[in-house]
Computed example of a mutant assay.
Amino acid sequence: MPYNEFLGDRIRAILIEKRVNFFEKNMFGGLCFMVDDKMCIGVVRDEVMARIGVDAYEDALKKPGCKEMNFTGRPMKGYVFLIDDATDMESDLAYWIQLALDFNPLARASKKRKK
């Protein structure tokens, strides 16, 4: 299933407005915005995926529209999915993007695969 391109456009616009250096990568059947060569925020189907780190994780799950990211049957701590309640308003989407950007310098980049 394709990802929600409108959500991708909204994220891209906020990153550009914040003057963030990023590139886009197709991942998980969706679109991921990479900052400093690390997965930061993205779109999977109709949901926003945000890498916010374990310190912000428990509090984030208490917010409307935020849920665990679960691809494999186990939640991935530090990553959340955001549904409409969390991203309808531009200010709400900008909040989650900033949370992901704040964590980004602390995140580890995945190891590069040898070709």
Rank of each mutant, 00 (worst) to 15 (best):
Y3V: 00
L7F: 05
G8E: 03
G8V: 03
R12F: 04
A13C: 05
A13Q: 12
I14F: 07
I14G: 03
F22I: 12
F23T: 13
F23D: 13
K25A: 07
N26F: 05
F28C: 04
G30F: 07
L31Y: 00
L31G: 02
F33N: 08
F33P: 11
M34Q: 10
D36H: 10
D36S: 14
D37F: 08
K38I: 06
K38P: 05
M39C: 00
I41H: 05
G42H: 04
V44Q: 15
V44I: 15
D46N: 14
D46T: 12
D46K: 14
E47Y: 09
E47L: 10
V48E: 00
V48S: 05
A50N: 09
D55A: 14
A56G: 01
D59M: 04
L61M: 09
L61H: 07
P64D: 11
P64Q: 05
G65F: 02
M69W: 13
M69N: 09
M69S: 10
N70H: 01
R74W: 01
R74Y: 02
P75C: 03
G78Q: 07
G78A: 12
Y79A: 11
V80W: 05
V80H: 08
V80E: 09
F81E: 05
F81I: 01
D84G: 09
D85N: 07
A86F: 08
T87C: 08
T87M: 11
E90M: 13
D92M: 11
Y95R: 14
I97R: 10
I97C: 05
L99W: 05
A100I: 08
N104K: 02
P105T: 09
L106G: 02
L106V: 01
A107W: 01
A107H: 08
R108H: 12
A109S: 11
S110D: 09
K111R: 12
K112P: 01
K114L: 14
